[in-house]
Design a protein around this nucleic acid. Structure first.
Length: 464
RNA sequence: GUCCCCAUCGUCUAGAGGCCUAGGACACAACCCUUUCACGGUUGGUACCGGGGUUCGAAUCCCCGUGGGGACGCCA
């Protein structure tokens, strides 16, 4: 049974990189009929918040990435960590270290100055025949893992291929702080072990933790899972995404008018491919997804392509569903949506030409507000030449059958009578009725309005 | 500084020695459609980081450069 996990630390929102990691872990479990576990890594008490936990869950819900087990909270597993810690202390794979943070800081500084890799010097590490220093009074020790000093740790990374690191590169990492709370690398190991995780799919930034985790796993006699390290997602400008640079919550995409299926499809294609396929459902994705076709190199986020995908999914979406998504956006702007004109009907006409829900809201808004077309536009299009034709149109509009084809016939009759070209009448109608010069075909737009509103807006424009 | 990773059009990518005078998608340009603007359709331009090998043959394998990124915490 394949078991994957998504293990965010609740120190902020779920951003696009985390979302992709979650998506791939989820899809991999789905593909193999396995389980997808959600684990909250909240051992950094100072930075973890319940709000962040909720934000992450909200993000995953919006995307529809449902977990099969969890959420498990590491803070609730302290007893288990302490139990394992005790075993390691007893069997000699871990030891107490009395070096203070200040001494460590000094040590690192000296090593850096000499051009060496900063690392713990092993003062308190027990060795056969070695006499350990006397523990200083008043110093609470930390617990360190007694790492291997010779040989290499290697694993066959499912994305990057074989990675091999000399044990000499690894120092004895702290696995429990002075207050005996366990640290990240230790909790992860115990959790992955206890939770039976078979495939660890995570960000590239964890590659360096992997050899340490493998060594601890081995010291524990646990099975080592398979690892797949996903490369990072860069911002639109090629820069690294961070809180202060471009990284935004996936919920921001909701706010900006993107459909979750568009974001999901976009993310799926970022770093993974299936031949020339670009547009596919999550069901299709889960059928196709495997770890074979993941790119090892970093990918730059491209909003243009996301926009294109979103436009595509907008066209596919049901009008009623889109209306339900657009209505609150209009209401948030203080626009009251009424039964007439029908929001779903407006959306049906406009969804072909926009790329976000917010643009759909922009288009729909003019149907509901108290419209005041810009004076320049009115002056430009409602010309002396057009006015007689507009007056005829207004007269005809009182009785014409209220449907696009009849309205179209009326418009044609008006321009025919006055010897005008289509735009000469269509443009002022657009301006007077929507305040815009770019709309779908004018007859279709007019048929969306209740007749009274058209008469009213034309009259307000001085047409009589 | 040390260790690790990465490198095909502007961007996402196909490509696992001959099918590649390098394919698709976004973006871009032109044309068509449309008596508005979009949508849609057609066409087009643009890429294998550099240098050495290996091989009959390399975008694909190896080495060295170069460039980019990551990690070196009692953070996760």
């Amino acid at each position: 049974m394949i078991r994957t996990r998504f293990a965010p630390s609740p120190t902020g929102f779920l951003h696009i990189g985390g979302a992709r990691t979650a998506l791939f872990s989820w899809a991999f479990a789905r593909h193999h009929g396995g389980k997808f576990v959600l684990r909250i890594e909240d051992t950094d008490v100072a930075r973890s918040t319940p709000e962040a936990v909720q934000a992450i869950i909200d993000g995953m819900n919006w995307l529809g990435l449902a977990h099969d087990e969890g959420p498990f909270y590491q803070m609730q597993r302290m007893d288990r960590y302490k139990e394992v810690l005790q075993q390691m202390l007893e069997n000699g794979s871990a030891y107490y270290c009395y070096t203070t943070p200040e001494e460590l800081e000094q040590m690192r500084e000296d090593q850096r100055a000499k051009g060496l890799k900063p690392r713990y010097d092993g003062t308190w590490r027990p060795e056969p025949g070695k006499t350990l220093p006397t523990p200083p009074a008043g110093v609470q020790p930390v617990v360190r893992f007694r790492n291997l000093t010779e040989g290499t740790v290697a694993w066959n990374d499912l994305v990057k291929g074989r990675i091999e690191i000399a044990n000499a590169e690894l120092d004895d990492l702290v696995i429990a702080r002075a207050d005996m709370t366990p640290t990240y690398n230790f909790c992860v190991v115990v959790d992955d072990w206890d939770m039976g995780i078979t495939h660890v799919i995570r960000g590239d930034d964890h590659v360096n933790n992997t050899p340490r985790q493998i060594n601890i796993l081995k010291a524990l006699g646990a099975d080592v899972p398979l690892y797949a390290h996903l490369s990072m997602i860069l911002g639109d400008d090629g820069q690294k995404l961070s809180k202060r640079h471009g990284a935004v919550s996936v919920m921001q995409y909701d706010h900006d008018g993107y459909l979750p299926e568009a974001v999901l499809n976009y993310l799926a294609r970022l770093g993974w491919s299936h031949g020339d396929d670009e547009v596919f459902s999550m069901q299709q994705f889960c059928e196709w997804f495997d770890l074979d076709h993941i790119t090892p190199s970093a990918a730059q986020f491209n909003t243009e392509k996301l926009n294109w995908l979103n436009a595509h999914y907008l066209k596919q979406a049901e009008d009623e569903r889109l209306a339900r998504l657009v209505q609150p956006r209009l209401e948030a702007r203080g626009v009251m949506v009424t039964v007439e004109p029908s929001l779903a009907a407006i959306i049906a006409l406009y969804k072909e030409r926009v790329s976000t829900l917010n643009e759909l809201a922009d288009a729909a808004e003019v149907f509901y507000i108290d419209l005041h077309p810009a004076h320049e536009l009115v002056a430009q299009h409602v010309t002396a030449e057009a006015k007689p034709a507009l007056a005829d149109f207004l007269a005809g509009a009182r009785t014409v059958t209220w449907e696009a084809s009849a309205i179209s016939a009326l418009i044609k009759a008006c321009i025919g009578k006055h010897g005008l070209k289509m735009p000469k009448l269509a443009m002022p109608l657009r301006v007077l009725l929507t305040g815009q010069t770019q709309t779908p075909s004018v007859d279709a737009v007019i048929s969306l309005f209740p007749r009274d509103l058209v008469l009213k807006r034309l009259a307000a424009g001085g047409i009589e």
